[in-house]
Write a protein that binds this DNA or RNA. Structure first.
Lengths: 315, 315
DNA sequence: AATCTCGATGTTACCGGTAACATAACGGTG
DNA sequence: CACCGTTATGTTACCGGTAACATCGAGATT
């Protein structure tokens, strides 16, 4: 007990004792066992982050923001990748709860009912990030993917580009992708444009898939005048494909992306896209979690971090 | 005890009892406490991964490979970002050891002596990944950054490009970056080329920094004929800068990268680079860790995963 | 000198699992 | 019917911390 005190509350121990304890601890190479501490305190100091995958830079930045923020408050991040599957997410959440994480960050707002039930029952702070939840499990940080996609699409429409194509990520178990497509469709509809499903391609979320999708679109609909891509990764892939075919951007085909990744401003020509505060989502989620874990109540449990349209050169 | 058995070793319990236990567990929403289990078993089922940062796709793929592999064996990955600092790494390792992780993955081979001492004393499996260690703390998976960089540089030299520029990441606390520069210099030296330090730029590791570095190089040394970039991220940034200045690649300036990220094959013109098996490094590290944690000995504690030169269009 | 006070240190129990050992229940055998 | 082996269940102690309470010792107060 004196040892515990010497290390955790030095002022409660005589100086000589403290010095002696510290010396011996050093000699022995003693490291406190946070597993045991977690067991007694019923608090592990772990925050779980459930994400679709780690290799996506959008997600990586959110995780980085979350990690930095909780780390500053003495917490350690436990990350798990679900591979864009709600059942994978459920398994991950179950595993995290078994580890008695103090809080959980979830990507997106569509979850299995078991996931929701477990989290509700556990009563730990939980933030759903990325998309805005009207009725979150607990708290939420994000922006409206649908509104944002509408905004980009409207820009393409207003500039007079017709016909419009769409390239997006698989919507299955990915509410952000689904909502972005909905936003695209909503903008078309409100402008009286009929969406041609054969000009909408859904695919994996990487450069290569973006390029392939663009290739398919150009083959099947050479008349396509502009393409809205629901992620910059896809947009840049599409740009490269157009460049390989020597199709000038935006003279012959306009392209708009979504996310404003680093590459969007660097690629030539620079990509017109929609900036979403990725790091900020993670940071904000981390703040909310830490607030709650510090025993304070979070006054705004649903935070809209907004987005910003960035007009550049591709559309 | 009967409950423990019913859940962990069902065959040791009468069927009726097992069914009853399962039903009650479900009703109660019982989740086993892995913290407590970890305490008794002296095994947490956690593997720690210490990486410089999460937003780099090279690193992210290694982490993904590691995560997938250990997850398949029932382990959970704990990740920590050091921000390219060995003292940050030391703090991270200390934290992980306090959490009693069963094994640790470290990025690179340069560590503080305290880090090495702690890991040695802990006696847990430890893999150093990315670069090859001659004398690893425990095990290592990687390839020779220096040899690989020499190979790429030699290609540039053999094609007759002169003078040669270099763009790389900060070498401080980053042995991969340091070794790549050494490889560049070694190739130059053995070809009798004197390296002009003013044509070697070191900078942050992102697209924007690559572009800026290229800009500086082109401004100060317009005669530069080829640039070796020690990472594809830098190379692509440099390409974009050249394209913005309408400098044709490779007609007027040749560029070679390193890593063979997805983007290398997609960018136009496709980037000449060096492929390193990123996911494989993580996978292999995971395998070695799991082998050891399963009580088996790893016969080859130093694995050279090799690399492959990929000639494309930029050089 | 007896009592009080306060800081320093010691003792006990508990967190939620599990290993090791103890006991109970039961059908079969000589 | 005593004895056995087998299977099912129960008991105890321990993993490494910490809260709560107990004790101790020394100087201050009466």
């Amino acid at each position: 007990m004196t040892v515990t005190r010497a290390l955790n509350a030095p002022h409660k121990v005589a100086k000589a004792t403290r010095v002696r304890v510290e010396a011996i601890a050093r000699d022995l190479g003693y490291t406190p066992d946070l597993t045991a501490r977690g067991l007694t305190l019923q608090r592990t100091g772990l925050v779980g982050a459930v994400v679709p995958l780690l290799t996506n830079s959008l997600i990586a930045e959110i995780v980085q923001g979350l990690s930095d923020t909780v780390a500053r408050n003495g917490f350690q991040l436990l990350v798990g990748a679900t591979g864009f599957s709600t059942s994978g997410e459920e398994a991950m959440v179950r595993a995290f709860l078994s580890r008695r994480v103090d809080a959980i960050y979830l990507t997106g707002i569509s979850h299995t009912s078991a996931t929701i039930a477990m989290l509700r029952q556990s009563r730990i702070p939980c933030v759903e990030g990325g998309n805005l939840a009207r009725k979150p499990i607990d708290m939420a940080v994000g922006y409206s993917s649908k509104d944002a996609a509408t905004k980009v699409t409207r820009y393409l429409i207003d500039r007079g580009y017709r016909p419009l194509g769409y390239i997006g990520a698989w919507p299955k178990d990915n509410d952000r992708a689904r909502d972005r497509r909905r936003g695209f469709e909503a903008a078309c509809k409100s402008a009286g444009i009929v969406v041609d499903d054969s000009m909408c391609v859904e695919t994996d979320l990487d450069l290569h898939a973006g390029a392939r999708a663009m290739g398919m679109l150009l083959d099947s609909h050479p008349e396509v005048r502009a393409v809205f891509c629901s992620a910059d990764t896809l947009a840049v892939g599409a740009m490269f494909e157009a460049q390989r075919r020597c199709i000038p951007i935006p003279a012959r085909i306009a392209i708009a992306g979504f996310d404003d990744l680093d590459i969007a401003s660097q690629v030539v020509p620079a990509l017109t896209t929609l900036r979403v505060p990725r790091y900020e989502i993670g940071r904000q989620a981390g703040e909310m979690i830490c607030e709650r874990l510090a025993g304070r109540t979070v006054t705004t449990p649903i935070v809209d971090v907004g987005y910003e349209f960035v007009a550049r050169l591709t559309a």
